[in-house]
Design a protein around this nucleic acid. Sequence first.
DNA 1: TCTGGGGTCCTAGGACCC
DNA 2: TCTGGGGTCCTAGGACCC
Length: 416
Amino acid sequence: MPPLPRRIAHLDMDAFYASVELLRYPQLKGLPVVIGGGRRAVDDALSLLEASPAAQASGNPRAFIPIDAFARLKDYAGRGVITTATYAARQFGIGSAMGLMKAAKLCPQAIQLPVDFEEYRRFSRLFKATILQIAPQLEDRGVDEVYIDFTNVPGGQREGGRVLARLIQKSIFDATGLTCSVGVAPNKLLAKMASEFNKPNGISIVFEADLQTLVWPLACRKINGIGPKADDKLLGHGIRTIGELAAKDLQWLIDNFGQSTGAWMHAAAWGRDERPVVTESEPVSMSRETTFERDLHAVHDRAELGAIFTRLCEQVAGDLQRKGYVGKTIGIKLRFDDFRIATRDQTIDHFTADAHTLRQVAGQCLKRVPLQQRLRLIGVRVGTLAKRSEVFAENAPGAPQLAREQQAVPQTGQLF
DNA sequence: TCTGGGGTCCTAGGACCC
DNA sequence: TCTGGGGTCCTAGGACCC
């Protein structure tokens, strides 16, 4: 029997965070709602506001406070950003990654909700488990997106995948009350674009033959992997659409964008993508970072900075231990007040998940950065990961590498 | 009232080894 | 004197994605 034509689906939950919140608070349907800005400053502000009569009357004090109330709070630092906004809020020009203060200006009456990642993750697990009962080849692409290989699944070839897509949509709605959009195409690249064609709650089916009519008129930016920089550069050459990109010579693209990027762009514009659906993967790094409520200075705010730095190391160590990983490349990330970023890292001779070791090596990394300028953010990262169990197995008997990890790391008493 | 947090992958130079 | 390659690891930065 000849192999079936490859049919790959991209499934995207519709306005995921907002939809989960609307399930919880159906009264908010149709109202402008923004989700995000949930930093400590916001929590402090919330606790002040919870006592307000309007909030009390709503029955859910935290949920029904207009965003404007924050903007008017005297000492509010205002560093939170909007994670997402409902369609009603988008009408006012509010979008994700927008500063909370700007959003308050655009739509003072918008209701602000804190983000609840735990709840979103719960729904995420639920919809993915639902898909897995129907189609076993699933690639996780974050909390609200997946690729699914339809090729050999019953119904996966009927009407180009529409029959299976409909079944999955219905099953997810029955299990969660949430809608999603699905694109089915010969590969991941086209499936990802297709899932955007018919939002929300839509299905769109794309074949190779649809390339010219459905894909070539789109902006290059619609290709997953072409971001703002590459798009700017393409525009600089007068290339606006994917069709215009496809019309360019392969060699011309290689000369202007490099061997790898040029060749990839050419293939993408012609709808070619052989990447498989990857059902399992190991993490490469784990990190924690935080933006301060006000910019801090390495000397002036040494104690505060040191405490935050230590906490980040403890958090990364906790994450590693909880998930059963160890790593040997320890690094830091700094963002200065002018938004410049500096990174430093160091690879040590053994794997670790120990907070003191991370703190010590990360402290050494910090010493290698000039710190005249104020800092906005600091982060700690561990890379070159391995499964803790495998490092144990490799070293048994004797486990010399981990034995070293368990040695007490001398506390220098210094901050950095 | 500018601009969060957690990731992946790529590039490019230098060290070091054969 | 100076002349080679190839391969891997480490480090710093940057683009991009969700």
